[in-house]
Computed example of a mutant assay.
Amino acid sequence: MRRDDQVLVFDADDTLWENNIRFERAIDAFLAEVAPFAPDRAAARAVLDGVEAANSAAHGYGSEVFRLSLGEAFALLAHRPPGPAELDRFAALAATVTSAEVELIDGVAETLPALAARHHVLLLTKGDRAEQQAKLDASGLLGHFRSVHIEPEKDLPTYRRLIDGQALAPERTWMIGNSPKSDILPARAAGLNAVFIPHQHTWSLDDAALDPADTGVLRLSAFAELGEHF
């Protein structure tokens, strides 16, 4: 049954457009560079994941934090600070994740305008404000959103501020995203409904277990399926 006159709050990265695949490509190059210093690829990736988790909690998200994490992970693996050439290499890898080109997820270009015509559509994304705004501007999607919210983190207080600031009715508001940790679980904790659309390249640090018995979470396999429900 299609739901009418709802508030649809969309995540951006890996929900509306491809994002984490760029980081994965850069990480592949980094792991190749540190291979001589690590027992295996999995061990090197675990070190980088730990550094990224700490830095995202302390400094937020974006290419600059990613560059910092590459340098710190290298130092832990190589047991020495990176040299000038290595620092230049890490800066170049970080720059590759902020390309001005935006690749929309399949179905977004056709489905989002139709949803915006029937519902109140908002954007809620986390990350570096300038980088996220640049991606939104390049996407061609800006005009579909009633309001845009770029936050340093998407946690329970973030959702509560959004509900209060936009005077949202939780029972008819849906958070739509690919990340269990930042899109689904905190939205549900705030009393919102949620739509989970998995993405094969979701950042590992954004993963978390969802309750399969939670009837407040609609699970879809593709963005275009939203048109069948809203």
Rank of each mutant, 00 (worst) to 15 (best):
1 M>S: 15
3 R>Y: 07
5 D>G: 12
7 V>N: 12
9 V>E: 05
9 V>F: 05
11 D>L: 02
14 D>P: 05
16 L>D: 05
17 W>D: 08
18 E>K: 12
19 N>C: 14
22 R>S: 12
22 R>P: 04
25 R>P: 05
25 R>N: 10
25 R>K: 11
27 I>P: 02
28 D>R: 09
31 L>H: 02
40 D>T: 00
41 R>D: 11
42 A>W: 03
43 A>N: 08
43 A>G: 01
47 V>I: 09
49 D>I: 10
49 D>V: 10
51 V>T: 11
52 E>D: 10
55 N>Y: 06
56 S>A: 13
56 S>M: 15
60 G>D: 11
64 E>R: 12
67 R>M: 08
72 E>S: 07
72 E>M: 07
72 E>A: 10
73 A>T: 04
76 L>Q: 12
76 L>I: 10
80 R>Q: 14
81 P>S: 14
83 G>A: 15
85 A>F: 00
86 E>T: 12
86 E>G: 06
88 D>L: 12
89 R>A: 05
89 R>Q: 06
90 F>L: 08
90 F>M: 10
91 A>T: 09
93 L>M: 11
93 L>A: 01
102 V>Y: 04
102 V>K: 03
103 E>W: 05
103 E>N: 11
104 L>Q: 07
105 I>G: 05
114 A>R: 15
115 L>R: 01
115 L>Y: 01
117 A>F: 01
117 A>M: 05
118 R>Q: 15
121 V>Q: 00
121 V>R: 02
126 K>S: 12
127 G>C: 07
128 D>A: 12
128 D>W: 02
130 A>Q: 15
132 Q>M: 04
135 K>N: 09
135 K>F: 02
137 D>V: 13
137 D>M: 01
139 S>R: 00
139 S>H: 01
142 L>H: 07
143 G>H: 14
145 F>T: 06
146 R>K: 13
147 S>Q: 14
150 I>S: 14
150 I>D: 08
150 I>M: 04
153 E>D: 12
154 K>D: 09
154 K>A: 09
154 K>N: 08
156 L>A: 10
157 P>E: 13
158 T>Q: 02
158 T>K: 03
160 R>T: 05
160 R>C: 13
160 R>V: 13
162 L>G: 10
163 I>W: 11
164 D>W: 01
168 L>F: 15
168 L>Y: 04
170 P>K: 00
172 R>A: 06
172 R>F: 03
172 R>W: 01
173 T>K: 00
174 W>I: 01
179 S>T: 04
179 S>P: 09
180 P>E: 11
180 P>F: 04
181 K>E: 13
181 K>L: 15
182 S>I: 02
184 I>M: 08
186 P>A: 03
186 P>G: 02
188 R>M: 07
189 A>Q: 14
190 A>V: 04
192 L>P: 09
194 A>S: 11
197 I>W: 02
198 P>I: 06
199 H>D: 13
199 H>G: 06
202 T>E: 13
202 T>R: 07
203 W>S: 00
204 S>H: 07
207 D>T: 11
209 A>N: 01
209 A>C: 04
215 T>K: 14
216 G>R: 08
216 G>W: 01
216 G>V: 03
217 V>M: 02
217 V>R: 04
220 L>H: 10
221 S>V: 00
224 A>M: 05
226 L>F: 09
226 L>E: 03
